[in-house]
């Protein structure tokens, strides 16, 4: 098999993935997104930066840290009929929290109450409707960046004014969610194809639990409920290799908070004992069939 690994740079995850490919006897061509240059009028016969025609690749595994570079490359390659992991369809939904919420709503998958508005006054109304405390999130963004917990009307007005004044256009989409009173942790579950392979708790006294912001990882047993909601959520956004972030509300009900399509897992193999890179590579190479 001929594989291309599309990256922004090499992090702990990409290093493990490359090792996992080697363990399968595969040496992926490493392609840097900064080197990409497409002539969109010609097709897959066009040479990739590796000097090999894109259409020669059996699969292109997209691991860009840059969401826009990854998304557009997936869009182009999928149009040329080149298999990618993940697909453009899945990535485009997961890259946008509002699109993700719409897909989850379509599939009746529990998520925090979510409202959206596009201007200051209607955003205030949306926050009032969701009730305080509420959470304001940029629709595109990651690593817990620019999340705001809005405790009262004064802070709502200030945050909206800042976003309206300082933020670029995508900060004028006001994506408002109820604040879920969770037990100082959330759950990150890893779905590969149609299997929830493992999950971690991310514990933090801070309401933002991303490990990028200091959340501590520990193993989370996969209950039937976690497995079921994760598989349904993954299918709702088009499936593939996904990290599903779950919240446990005060009654212990699970809510899907977010889905990530270029997942980080450096802190997750040790506590779970699952070789996530190996699972991901097997799926990338062989797809669903072998992994039943």
């Amino acid at each position: 098999m001929r594989v291309a690994l599309l990256i922004t740079h090499i992090r702990a995850e990409e290093k493990r993935l490359i090792e996992a490919f080697h363990a399968q006897g595969i040496s992926p061509d490493i392609i840097l997104d900064r080197d990409l240059h497409f002539n969109i009028n010609s097709g897959g016969e066009q040479l990739a930066p590796s000097r090999i025609a894109w259409q020669e690749y059996d699969v292109v595994f997209e691991r860009c840290v840059s969401t826009s570079r990854g998304l557009y490359t997936l869009a182009i390659l999928n149009r040329w009929g080149i298999r990618t992991v993940n697909s453009y369809q899945t990535a485009a939904i997961c890259a946008d929290k509002l699109q993700t919420s719409l897909a989850l709503a379509d599939a009746d998958i529990p998520q925090p109450r979510t409202h959206v508005a596009f201007a200051p006054d209607s955003a205030m109304q949306a926050i009032d409707d969701v009730q305080y405390p509420a959470v304001l999130k940029p629709v595109t963004g990651s690593w817990g960046r620019l999340l705001a917990r809005v405790n009262d009307r004064d802070s709502a007005e200030a945050i909206i004014e800042h976003r309206q004044t300082l933020g670029s256009y995508n900060h004028h989409t006001y994506y408002v969610q109820e604040y879920v009173n969770k037990p100082q942790r959330d759950i990150r579950a890893f779905v590969v194809g149609n299997r929830t392979i493992c999950a971690i708790y991310r514990s933090s006294p801070h309401w933002i639990t991303n490990t990028a912001k200091g959340g501590q990882a520990s193993n989370c047993p996969i209950t039937t409920e976690i497995d079921e909601i994760c598989i349904r959520a993954a299918q709702a956004v088009g499936g593939g290799i996904l990290a599903i972030d779950l919240l446990e509300d005060e009654n212990g009900n699970l809510l899907v908070n977010e889905i990530n399509h270029t997942m980080e897992f450096r802190n997750s193999s040790t506590p779970t004992g699952v070789d996530i890179a190996a699972e991901v590579v097997r799926y990338t190479l062989f797809g669903e069939e072998v992994l039943a």
């Binding site: 840290v65 840059s66 969401t67 826009s68 595109t140 963004g141 990651s142 690593w143 990530n260 980080e264």
Partner: peptide, 11 residues
Amino acid sequence: FAPEVEEDWGE
């Protein structure tokens, strides 16, 4: 220097 983190960088 590693490239600066951009607003759309993440998972």
